[in-house]
Every structure is written in C-alpha cells, then in structure tokens.
C-alpha cells in the first residue's frame, strides 16, 4: 500500500507537539535523517524484544526450589520508524512471536502498548534496498500513522494530528517525490528468489561468498528482523532465566551437547543467515525475512554486502 494522498498537512510544530504528548522514541535511522528531539533506539526490535530480559526467577528457600514467573511488562510507547523498520515488525517479528502459536506474552504485551509510526523516506541511501524485497520508502502498511516531511510542513495520514488539506503545490511535490523515488528505486529481486536460493544450497560458490566475513554478530544484532534468541540461566542458588539475543553467526549457536555441530564451518553460518532471510522464511511465511534497511551493510566491519551475496547466489542458481 502506498500513501493514499488523503492525509493532511500539519505544521512541523504541531506534529512535534503531538509526538511529545507520550513517551516518544525514534529509531537510529530516523534520528540520522531527521533531527527530531527524541531519544533514539537502534531498531524497533530493541523495544519489542530487548537484548536482555528476565523471564522468571528461581531461588532456593525453605529447603525447596521456587520458580516465580516475571509477568510481561509494557508501558505505552510511541515509536517513529522508517517504513522498512515498520515492515520488520509487522511482517517478521509479529509473524514469529504472535502468528505462531503459542503467542509470546512478553512480546504481545509490548506490541499492544506500541504505537508505531512510519516516517516516509525521501531518498535512497547507498545502503538502502527496501524496494528489492517488496518494501517501499513511502509505504504506510502496518503503521499506525504515516508522516512525511514536506517543504511546507508535515504530511500526515492517520489519527491524532489535525491539519489542512493538501494544497495543489503540495500534491505536486508528493507526485514529484513518488516519481523521483520510482526512478531511483533498486529493482526487486527475482520473484522466485526463495526457490532459487533453496536450490543453490549445495552450490560451490558459498565458500567464496562467505570469505571475508568475520562471523561476528554485528549484522544480526543490529538487524531489525533477526529474532533469534538464547535462554541462558544466571545464578546458581538464586537467579533468573535470561532471554538475550543470539546470532546464527556464532559457532556455539547450534553446538549440541554431544559436541556435534551441524553448522561448524563459518561458511555454513553465513549461508544460514542468507537463506533464512531470503529463502526459508519466505517459503514458510510468504514474505522475505529481510526488509532492506541496509543497516547490516552500513555497519559491517568488512563491508560484506548481503545484496551482492543474494545476487551472486541467484545468478548461480539460474
């Protein structure tokens, strides 16, 4: 869904005033592009699935073990994110934590308390590739409201901010922006990409593709869709079960107690990351597990570029 054009134009002050009414955060991407006076979080994931969270406590008392579940907590939060980051929540995280019975109560509570706004993008950064994976810089799909800075104010779709109808010059500005984005949009990956990649599992180019990757967790931890987590106990006589992010890049991710490791080689782990996002997840849920925000490309210590990797594998399969 693209923007409908049925929104209103509010002044920047009115928009900011409305945002300031609640506990408002912006994602780092939004913070970098638009200087807004709100604290930033890395991605919506950091709000919905914190990196460190205690699920239950256990302790030894009165000569017996006790377990106390820690109830889910969530305070209302308003988060302004880029459209791709909104898509990461609605397409990927929601599907895993809510669409897959049983629902995760911790995620569900926080999600219920989250007002997620999309702030449209007016240009593609060098790392952006949302249009390659089915997204759009002006998409308001899944967001509770949509905003876009215009030269004369802020274009707003949704409830809460009052403004005036679009003037014809603003309509033209919007149309010009859409046309401009259309021209510069990176073209989508082939429709059958998940199938091609699945076929290419045994291809011999993986070694070459994975070479250079340090196998660190920077890409997965800073990714808005990577949801894999670890449950690790803290403490011995009293402590808690802690949920913390984990990464398929780490050798211990799949290490069995028997010391068998199905993905012991760095190449296998890189392959798992690409295939999980671009093949396994789409085959299971019908949407890419990547939203094209480009954070992994921008933050990779060795400039390992997932776009090139997918292109190479697709061309290998073809």
């Amino acid at each position: 869904m693209r923007l409908s054009g049925n929104g209103v134009v509010a002044t920047r002050e009115a928009f900011l005033e409305w945002l300031s009414r609640g506990r408002t955060f912006v994602t780092e991407t939004v913070a970098r592009r638009f200087r807004l006076p709100f604290p930033s979080v890395p991605t919506p994931k950091a709000v919905l699935l914190p990196q460190h969270e205690a699920l239950y406590r256990f302790f030894w008392a009165r000569r017996t073990w006790n377990v106390h579940p820690l109830p889910p907590e969530g305070t209302p939060i308003l988060l302004l994110a880029a459209p791709c980051e909104v898509k990461a929540v609605t397409d990927v995280l929601d599907a895993v934590f809510l669409g897959n019975a049983p629902q995760d109560p911790y995620y569900a509570t926080r999600r219920k308390n989250l007002i997620l706004g999309a702030l449209g993008c007016t240009f593609f950064e060098a790392t952006c590739f949302c249009t390659r994976v089915g997204g759009h810089p002006l998409s308001r799909e899944g967001a509770d409201f949509f905003a876009l800075p215009l030269s004369s104010g802020v274009y707003f779709e949704g409830e809460g901010v009052s403004g005036r109808p679009l003037a014809s010059s603003e309509k033209e500005e919007l149309e010009a922006l859409v046309a401009d984005l259309e021209k510069t949009a990176p073209p989508p990956f082939p429709e059958k990409t998940p199938e091609y990649l699945y076929e290419a599992f045994g291809c011999d180019i993986w070694e070459d593709i994975a070479w250079g990757c340090l196998n660190c967790g920077a890409c997965t931890f800073l990714c808005p869709t990577c949801f894999c987590f670890d449950l690790a106990l803290e403490g011995r006589l009293r402590g808690a079960m802690i949920r913390t992010w984990d990464s398929c890049m780490f050798p211990k991710f799949t290490l069995h107690a028997s010391s068998h490791n199905p993905r012991s080689h760095p190449m296998q782990r890189v392959r798992q990351r690409i295939l999980h996002k671009f093949s396994y997840h789409p085959l299971r849920k019908g949407v890419f597990g990547c939203v094209g925000c480009g954070r992994c490309v921008a933050l990779c210590p060795v400039n390992w570029d997932i776009r090139e990797a997918v292109e190479r594998v697709v061309s290998c399969a073809l």
Partner: peptide, 18 residues
C-alpha cells in the same frame, strides 16, 4: 536432533530449511 532453547518455534536455532 537439533540444538533447541525455546521449544516453541521462536528462538530460531533449530531452523533447518523452512
């Protein structure tokens, strides 16, 4: 057999293919 943590299809580590 696969390394597992949550048992609920959420933690992601027992993923093989789809």
């Amino acid at each position: 057999e696969m390394k597992m943590k949550c048992g609920l299809g959420k933690c992601g580590r027992c993923n093989i293919g789809p």
